[in-house]
């Protein structure tokens, strides 16, 4: 005889299993939604630091990413043969210009407007990093810029420190996502801001994309297991010994982490749990 408790538990797992898409269909049934647009991949890629355009193109393809961010400072918007822009096929990828290098809201807004005027679309990854050493985002200027850009019709994806209150404030002014850093950009240290990112995920009504510091596929998997909606990776892929193989590894890390999250991770316990409960006789 199966007691009602176990029956419920079993039904719960059956439900979870039915929510978890089958092989080959998983992304179709579990899309990432940003600003009303649907994406199969939950891995966003950056385009800096690659040793050549060809390797960058191959890594983008291998990762199966659908959102590619490009630093406006690196590209020549007036040049159709620009070695980055010409590689990012906009039929295949959503081009996400970023304002890397901007020190304040005014500069970031100006860059975003220029990108839109040059035909780069409405989407912008907002980066306001006044400190060129650690490239940490300025919360005050980021919020100011987000508010202006949202009002002007941009789809704003802001890069932020892992600050739950800032994340809510950005959500309130209309940001399409929040993109907290796992650790300083390019540092490959993984998720050092776990406690704060957990709160951001818990409270968020917009997708949470863990943006910086992910140095290994396992870091990406960790972020996804925590319930992040997506991750953005650049350095770890661009400077890997084999960037294309690393792009594939990150794709798998993201998928594994997402599936683990959807499957419902077991609770971490500090002590062993007895398989023969001492109080079982009471039932």
């Amino acid at each position: 005889m199966i007691c009602p408790f176990w029956l419920h538990l079993r039904l719960f797992f059956v439900q979870i299993a039915s929510m978890t898409p089958r092989k080959g269909e998983r992304n179709m049934n579990d899309p990432l939604m940003i600003a009303g647009r649907s994406f199969r991949s939950r891995l966003l890629l950056g385009t800096g630091k690659f040793s050549s355009s060809r390797i960058m193109r191959d890594a983008l393809a291998a990762s199966e990413t659908e959102i590619v961010t490009v630093a406006l400072r690196r590209v020549d918007l007036a040049d159709p043969g620009d070695n980055i822009l010409s590689v990012v096929d906009t039929n295949r990828y959503l081009l996400l210009p970023n304002t890397s290098g901007a020190r304040d809201a005014g500069e970031a807004v100006r860059l975003a407007r220029l990108a839109r005027a040059a035909g780069c679309g409405e989407w912008v990854k907002l980066e306001v990093t006044p400190d060129p050493q650690y490239l940490l985002p300025d919360p005050i200027e980021t919020l100011k810029a987000a508010e202006i850009l949202v009002k002007e019709g941009f789809v704003v994806l802001p890069y932020i420190g892992a600050d739950p209150i800032l994340a809510k404030r950005l959500e309130e002014v209309g940001s399409a996502t929040v993109m907290p850093l796992g650790s300083p950009i390019g540092s490959n240290q993984g998720i050092k801001t776990r406690v704060s990112i957990e709160i951001i995920i818990e409270k968020a009504n917009v997708p949470v994309v863990v943006d910086a510091g992910l140095g290994a596929p396992s870091h990406a998997a960790e972020a996804m297991e925590m319930g992040a909606d997506a991750v953005l990776v650049n350095t770890a892929i661009a400077v890997a010994g084999d960037p294309v193989a690393m792009a594939v590894a990150f794709k798998k890390g993201v998928e594994a982490g997402r599936e683990g999250f959807l499957a419902g991770l077991g609770r971490t316990r500090g002590v062993a749990e007895a398989s023969s409960p001492l109080t079982g006789f009471l039932r």
Binding site: L72, R73, V75, D76
Partner: peptide, 19 residues
Amino acid sequence: IRSKGYEAVWKDWDAAFLH
């Protein structure tokens, strides 16, 4: 530079930052 496995970058800044 390319033969050493590096990309030669001609532009890494934009006047739009200042104006």
